[in-house]
Amino acid sequence: MRRALFAVLGFASLLIAGCTSTVAGVPLAEDSPDDDRQLVQEYFDELNAAAEDGPATQRDFLRRSQHPDYTDDLCDLGDLTLNIDPAMSTLRVDPDWVPPDAGRDAAHPRGLVYVLGVSISIRQDGALLGEQIGSQRVVVLDGKAYGFAPCPTG
C-alpha cells in the first residue's frame, strides 16, 4: 500500500509540474473543424471506457493511441487506472508545445496539438487514490486523435 501511495503522489506531482493556472494556447477559431473537437472527445471517452475494463485494457489503449512519433516514450502505470474528464470548453490549439521529456532539440509533434483542462482520477483496484486538475495535450493527425501516455514518478 505504501508503494502505491508513493506512486500516486509521484504521479500527482508529475501532473502538477505540467499544470498552470490557465490553459495556454490559442482559442479555436469558429471555422476550426468540429471533427477535431469530436475526435478529442472520443479519445477521452475511449480512454475512460478502457479504464472501466481495467489496467490491462487501458495500457493497450494508451499504447495504441500514443502519438506515432513518441511510441518509444510509453510508461507502465502498473495496476493504476486513470479516468480523465476533459473540460471541452477549454480546448485550444497549442502550436509551440513539445513534450517536456523529449529533449532540448525536440520538434513540435506532427499534427495539430490541442491543450485542454482536465480532471484526473487515479484508481487502484477500483479504489480512488487521488484526484488532480491539470492540462493535457491531444494531437489530431491524419483524422485520428493521439495522446501522450503519462509516466508516474517516484
Rank of each mutant, 00 (worst) to 15 (best):
V113F: 02
D105K: 12
N83W: 09
E46G: 09
L39R: 14
D76I: 03
R37F: 02
Y43E: 07
S135L: 07
N48L: 08
Q124Y: 06
V118Q: 08
D35Q: 15
D34K: 10
E30K: 13
D73Y: 01
A17G: 10
P109L: 02
T57C: 09
H67R: 03
V8I: 01
S135Q: 15
D35I: 13
V140H: 02
V113Y: 00
Y146W: 09
D96K: 07
D36A: 11
A49V: 09
P86D: 11
D94R: 03
R104F: 12
F6T: 04
V113A: 13
F11I: 00
E46W: 06
F44Y: 15
G10F: 02
D85G: 08
A127I: 03
E42M: 10
R104Q: 11
C151F: 01
A87D: 15
A17Y: 12
P99Y: 00
R110V: 10
D60P: 00
D31P: 00
R59S: 15
L74R: 08
V93D: 06
H67E: 06
P152Y: 00
G78I: 01
Q38S: 13
A29D: 05
A50P: 02
A87C: 07
D76R: 06
A87F: 12
L91K: 00
D76V: 06
R37G: 11
S119P: 05
T153L: 15
Y43A: 07
G18P: 04
D101V: 01
L129E: 05
D53A: 12
R2Q: 13
S65R: 15
T71H: 00
P33M: 09
K144Y: 02
D60R: 14
D125G: 14
D105V: 08
A102E: 10
R59F: 09
D31V: 10
Q38K: 13
L15F: 03
